[in-house]
Design a protein around this nucleic acid. Structure first.
Length: 904
DNA sequence: ACCGCCGGGTGCC
DNA sequence: ACCGCCGGGTGCC
């Protein structure tokens, strides 16, 4: 009866990939408590950590509490047994102090040994050699949480009797461990805070809430603060962050955080600092103000993003946290002060300067001041994807009150100033993940990593979800007290992805991967009760997320102007129709051949090619003249095969049909093509091959799949080759171009100030459209993926300008730019050709229908009657239905839709 | 540590 | 007494 292990489905054997199985437990003792500050509570977990460089014993094993503070050491005889096991990673040793936590000299520790099934014997042996013997996992109630949690699941694979262990009393369930999560109480997220004086823009209510939340955010541990602002895009995360940065400053004086700095502040600021104390302050008198606090004292205690609280657990009372930072002043460009200028940087991006003249004067005093405050972090580092870099610059420009000046240094480009002290002097340093990562790898150390930042902000923070990616590692190594992650993506997807963020935030103890696994990942994977709740609690406590439909005080977060989508049908001319029909006929013949042969899926790329040409013909005949498609099949040399695959992949990528990888359902990252001509993200398909060993099959067509057959895209540049064509031939209009120009001219007549976006997936088409725009005297600008960052920023800036004579038309490639792209100057959108994925279109529309749009937005979609474009509309509708359905997360890939279309 | 261990002081009953 | 016993000093690894 005791021996009923169902070996067949033993989860332990499978589960040991990462998390391991439980070998057994052992009681030991922690000694030397005298000498360390870390304290533990009964039933609390501790971490065991090897200390090979201990001068007294090379076998030493440290014992740390949840907070990372050392509690003591493992007694030496036991340490001698553990050292080998731990060093060789034969087992993960986890400890729980079952009782005696208040002991002064030694305390017991219940250890659980986890690892691969294969290593169990070695571990048992090694312990035996030192006279220790593992007890079976589930003996009595002293086993600690690790074993309790997994009792239901991993138990059966082991020989221990499950029944006794599963029955946990309610008290046991409500373990000490859960209290750890209870401490992570959710903050009040509805309190509001006004922006500082230096903020030139009024905040919306939900932005005031975000600001208050960020300023007062309490989280453990005390000495690192921050969180995740995960609002939907378009709610103003950037503005809120700017507002946050501006809270550093008050009246041109620093708002200190710590005691020591506050003393200084009182002296420096004198009485005048009381004048606008209320503004830009976090109002939380109960927690924040000391008894009888005066306005100035509020400076002392108002914890800007400072924790006033927390971990009751595992934290030494004796311990005082040091190293709190003060704040540096924003320099007011009044009569008194101005900004020191030109330290020889490539770009100091605030020409908002009425103050350029006074800057030299300031320089002298600034240097001395900087010297004095040399240990006080001042600069905020903002890391973002390249695509939103210029947006940050614009937003700073736009939102800083004109009487104030903030130094923003863009750390980008080959001429970037690599002097850390120069970086540290800035108010804001802007850089990209790529720069961060490449610098980090450089010998001699990255300047960014030599600065102690006041605050680090990761924009589009989900870019660091992969813990082994260089940019993630680089981000984790940055030093700064406050750490913020901005992301528009809800962050529930993968627990693994979350760890990078948590780790970046330095949220102890979870930032330690061992603790993360132990407390979150393993319980979750093993389906421990309450595990998901804990994770949610954790996320809630550090995240602020609102969506576009969220409400503040009963009103929608954003009251955007109306948005209308019109469909404008276009009829082809006789000539165009003829061309269309002949290509269609040819394509149909090929497709029906594939159908009868049953090889549609094998000719996936070819079919897409036909569709692509049809779509191009709907726009302009010129677009598809040299899109050579090789419908001819046949036997080929490996080199020929490779080339065919590459060109097919390019076709797939440029067709705009395949923005999603069928495995991860996200846009293709590092695309590779299979022998069967299906395109996936490289990591995704490798994972498929790895997990389906020995015989992996293509997820789309179930053909054989081998790693060595995969072909990578040579260079992912913009695939359109629009440039060469325009000059050498006379341009001719098309039905669609005529329709567009008609609309544009009508619009100009009705409202000469109205601006519009002309959007296409084909940059060559945009090039063609340039001709009639010039002929009709439109001032226009252009933005596509092939443009360098600087040019893009310029294009956006020119377009957004309200100056007379500024461009009224922007030619925009559908996929250009990231989510941050802000084109609110436009109130009209002309979508020249439909996309497969309605979300791509939506995203494009949102670039003007977003925060900052004051007019109603009208979108016109040009659709050629009786053409592939009408079918695409139908597909889009299907997609929308699916996306709106209950299981919206599992949207079908573009590939699946293509198949529907073909078969139709 | 209300322990163990160490080493000095000491030494019949 | 090259012992036992006593009691003070001391204490992680």
């Amino acid at each position: 009866m005791e021996e009923t292990p169902s070996v067949g489905d033993a989860p332990g054997a499978e589960d040991d990939t990462d998390l391991g199985i439980l070998y057994g437990t052992l009681r030991g003792s922690v000694v030397g408590l005298r000498y360390y500050t870390g304290i533990v509570n009964n039933n609390e977990m501790v971490a065991l950590q090897r200390e090979p460089n201990n001068p007294y014993d090379k076998n030493a094993v440290k014992v740390n509490n949840v907070n990372g503070d050392q509690v003591g050491h493992i007694k030496k005889e036991l340490a001698a047994a553990l050292a080998g096991i731990m060093d060789n990673k034969l087992a993960l040793v986890e400890g729980v102090v079952p009782y005696g936590a208040k002991n002064v000299f030694t305390m017991p520790v219940q250890m659980s040994f986890w690892g691969k099934a294969a290593n169990k014997e070695a571990v048992v042996d090694q312990l035996k050699r030192h006279g220790f013997k593992l007890a079976p996992p589930l003996k009595g109630s002293e086993c600690g949480f690790g074993s309790k949690w997994i009792s239901g699941k991993a138990g059966p694979s082991y020989r221990a009797p499950v029944h006794a262990a599963v029955q946990l009393t309610p008290e046991q369930l409500k373990s000490e461990f859960d209290k750890l999560f209870e401490d992570l109480k959710e903050d009040d997220k509805t309190r509001e805070m006004e922006g500082a004086e230096a903020l030139g823009t009024r905040l919306l209510p939900h932005q005031k809430q975000a600001l208050a939340w960020m300023v007062s955010q309490k989280m453990r541990p005390q000495d690192v603060l921050g969180g995740i602002l995960a609002d939907d895009m378009g709610l103003g995360k950037t503005l809120t962050t700017i507002a946050l940065i501006l809270t550093n400053f008050q009246d041109g004086k620093p708002l200190p955080v710590g005691k020591t700095t506050s003393e200084r502040c009182r002296q420096e600021s004198g009485t005048n600092s009381t004048s606008n104390v209320g503004r830009g302050q976090c109002e939380d008198p109960g927690k924040v103000m000391g008894p009888g606090a005066s306005g100035i004292q509020r400076f002392d205690t108002t914890p800007l993003e400072t924790s006033s609280c927390l971990p009751k657990r595992g934290q030494a009372k004796k311990r005082r946290y040091s190293g709190q930072s003060g704040e540096r002043p924003l320099r007011q460009t009044g009569a008194t002060s101005c900004v020191e200028e030109d330290t020889g940087f490539a770009s100091v991006l605030f020409p908002s300067s009425a103050c350029l003249k006074r800057q030299t004067k300031r320089k002298v005093t600034a240097t001395t001041e900087n010297k004095r405050l040399v240990d006080v972090p001042r600069a905020t580092l903002i890391v973002c994807p390249l695509s939103v870099l210029s947006n940050w610059i614009d937003q700073f420009d736009q939102h800083i009150h004109r009487d104030f000046h903030v130094n923003v240094y863009v750390y980008y480009g080959s001429d970037r100033n690599k002097d850390p002290s120069v970086l540290a002097e800035q108010d804001v340093v802007l850089t990209t993940y790529n720069i961060l990562a490449t610098d980090y790898g450089v010998r001699g150390g990255s300047p960014l990593h030599r600065v102690r930042w006041l605050r680090i902000v990761l924009d589009e923070g989900h870019t660091i979800r992969n813990p082994s990616a260089q940019q993630t590692k680089a981000a984790l190594c940055l030093e700064g007290h406050r750490r913020w992650v901005l992301t528009g993506t809800p962050i529930q997807n993968s627990v693994k992805d979350l760890w990078s963020l948590i780790s970046f935030l330095k949220l102890k103890p979870f930032s330690d991967q061992e603790w993360w696994r132990r407390t979150i990942e393993r319980p979750l994977v093993l389906g421990a009760p309450g595990a998901l709740g804990r994770l949610q609690c954790l996320i809630r406590s550090i995240t602020l997320r609102r969506t576009k439909t969220s409400k503040v005080k009963g009103k929608p977060v954003l009251e955007l102007p109306e948005r209308k989508v019109l469909i404008q049908h276009v009829t082809l001319t006789e000539e165009e129709r003829q061309m269309y029909e002949s290509v269609k006929k040819e394509g149909k013949a090929a497709v029906s051949r594939f159908l009868s042969e049953g090889t549609v899926l094998a000719h996936y790329a070819d079919v897409l090619g036909v569709l692509l040409r049809l779509r191009q013909l709907c726009c302009h005949p010129r677009l598809c003249i040299d899109t050579a498609s090789s419908l001819a099949a046949g036997n080929k040399t490996p080199e020929e095969l490779r080339e065919t695959l590459v060109s097919k992949m390019k076709l797939v990528l440029s067709s705009g049909s395949d923005e999603e990888c069928a495995v991860c359902l996200e846009s293709l990252a590092c695309p590779v093509i299979t022998r069967c001509a299906h395109v996936f993200c490289k990591p995704c398909i490798f994972e498929v091959i790895r997990s389906e060993q020995p015989k992996a099959k293509c997820p789309l067509c179930r053909n054989e799949l081998r790693a060595e057959d995969l072909v990578q895209c040579p260079q992912e540049e913009e695939t359109d080759s629009g440039d060469g064509k325009k000059s050498d031939q006379e341009w001719t209009p098309s039905s669609k171009i005529n329709a567009l120009m008609h609309a544009l001219i009508e619009l100009r007549r009705d409202d000469p100030t109205a601006k519009c976006l002309v959007v296409s997936q084909f940059t060559a088409f945009l090039s063609l459209i340039e001709n009639p725009l010039k002929e009709s005297g439109f001032a226009f600008t252009r933005l596509d993926g092939s443009m360098a960052q600087k040019k893009r920023a310029e294009a956006v800036q020119r377009f957004q300008s309200s100056r007379a004579g500024s461009p009224t038309v922007m030619l925009l490639s559908l996929k250009a730019g990231g989510v941050g792209l802000n084109l609110t100057a436009a109130s009209r959108v002309f979508l020249m050709d439909p996309a497969w994925n309605p979300a791509a279109e939506e995203q494009c529309f949102d670039r003007c229908h977003r925060l900052g749009q004051s007019r109603d937005v009208v979108i016109t979609k040009f659709i050629v009657k009786d053409s592939v474009e009408e079918n695409m509309l139908r597909i889009q509708n299907k997609k929308r239905e699916l996306a709106a359905g209950a299981f919206a997360t599992r949207k079908p890939s573009a590939n699946e839709d293509t198949r529907q279309l073909v078969i139709r």
